[in-house]
């Protein structure tokens, strides 16, 4: 599958990754190659095969409805670039 520069630029914007204009061409080629590689799986006919989500027969584990966590705001905020009065602070985002 081929990838164009505009698509790469759009994906970069959605992922909030800054990509300089001169790298778009190169990345488009690399991403296209990766996609092409994965696309080879499409050669296998899976029309009648249920999607497989694991090999161990494991099912989704359930938890009880009990409060077992939280109560440590200082730990939650300890790596925050900005915090005031128990809140995270960020540049103003308002509609």
């Amino acid at each position: 599958m081929s990838m164009d520069k505009a698509t790469v630029a759009r994906i970069a914007t959605l992922a909030r990754i800054k990509v300089p204009e001169e790298e778009l061409e190169h990345l488009a080629g690399e991403l296209g190659q990766i996609l092409g590689w994965v696309e080879q799986l499409g050669e296998v006919d899976t029309a009648d095969v249920e999607p497989m989500t694991g090999v161990g027969g494991v099912s989704l584990p359930w938890r009880k409805d009990e409060v077992t966590d939280g109560g440590y705001p200082e730990r939650i905020l300890s790596n925050a670039p900005g915090a005031e009065a128990g809140f995270f602070t960020v540049a103003k985002v308002v509609e």
Binding site: E66, V67, T68, D69, G70, G71, I76, G86
Partner: peptide
């Protein structure tokens, strides 16, 4: 209506001190 959150064991009670009902999963 539940005691704990959907994917973590932190409380759902309304009106608590900020960030006091946050697990490392929620953060």
């Amino acid at each position: 209506v539940s005691n704990a959150k959907l994917f973590s064991g932190a409380s759902t009670a309304f009106g608590a001190e900020p960030n006091s009902q946050v697990s490392l999963v929620d953060a």
